[in-house]
């Protein structure tokens, strides 16, 4: 199962966005400047180019340290990009995340892009149920209805109901991770970023996550993922982007 990763330059010239695509990353360069280390410049990626079509799961491949997480963070907006375009289908239009204003990035996160990482970053005192329900409430859902849907999601991921009212900070690593997955999957955002969501899950819960991913794909959600587990990757990946081939250091050494 492969599809053309290179760009057909005949596509929509107005927006630069190929049809039926959720995300189009085009010729992106990223460098870190480490001011605390004699302003050392650390080129990470250059010429990064790939698309995520609707209903497809694109996996970032490449060895550890090749910049897979950097790609994810640029797409979510945590990292900036030096140049290029990161186009997102957002509310009927196209948003370039490289040049977007902070509030546009926030709006994109609210309604278009979801992020599921292996680490939960939640406010200490909030109960698990509300942590999961929050993205729905932020999008204007009724709080009780949001809690109900959050409960369904937590149950699917085998978080016992007695834990729902407790803050996840007190949970085990695996439980925290599942709360985080529930939070990521509870909304119906059309692009999901999955950053090793199954890292440390048992086989049963890995299975649930695969199920969730497939359901969302069937609904037309586009996904970009980093998967440590080969079995999960094989179960859901439609295409793989070799990040290593865009690694700036490697290109430099080749030149």
């Amino acid at each position: 199962m492969t599809y053309d990763m290179t760009h057909d330059l005949t596509h929509d010239m107005g927006t630069g966005m190929p049809p039926d695509t959720m995300l189009s990353v085009q010729d992106v360069r990223k460098t870190f400047t480490l001011h605390l280390q004699q302003s050392q410049r650390l080129p990470v990626l250059s010429g990064l180019t790939f698309d995520v079509p609707r209903g497809r799961c694109v996996v970032l491949g490449g060895e550890s340290g090749s910049g897979k997480s950097t790609v994810m963070k640029m797409v979510y907006g945590n990292y900036g990009a030096d140049s290029g375009r990161i186009l997102l289908s957002h509310q009927g239009g196209v948003l370039d995340l490289v040049t977007a204003q902070p509030r546009e990035v926030l709006a994109a996160r609210r309604s278009t892009v979801g992020y599921v990482s292996q680490f939960l970053r939640a406010v200490p005192r909030v109960p698990a149920l509300d942590v999961v329900a929050e993205p729905l409430v932020e999008r204007g859902a009724d709080r009780e209805e949001a809690r109900e849907r959050a409960g369904v999601m937590l149950a699917r991921l085998s978080i016992p109901e007695r834990l729902w009212a407790l803050p996840p900070a007190t949970f085990s690593g695996g439980e925290q991770q599942r709360v985080n997955i529930a939070r990521g999957f509870v909304t119906e955002r059309p692009l999901l970023l999955l950053d090793e969501p199954t890292a440390s899950l048992d086989a049963r819960n890995r299975g649930v996550v695969i199920e969730l991913i497939r359901e969302r794909l069937a609904e037309g959600v586009g996904m970009l993922g980093i998967f440590h587990d080969a079995d999960v990757r094989e179960a859901v990946a439609d295409a793989t982007v070799d990040v290593h081939s865009f690694t700036a250091a490697r290109q430099g050494s080749l030149a």
């Binding site: 302003s39 963070k73 907006g77 945590n78 990292y79 900036g80 990035v105 926030l106």
Partner: peptide, 30 residues
């Protein structure tokens, strides 16, 4: 949501909070 970093009376960096904190550009912010 957003952060302004100030030093010596001037804004030296601003933007989305997690970008300022995760990918700080200015030496001082780093």
């Amino acid at each position: 949501h957003r952060t302004l970093v100030m030093k010596d009376g001037a804004v030296i960096e601003s933007g989305l909070t997690d970008r300022v904190l995760d990918d700080p550009q200015a030496a001082y912010t780093q």
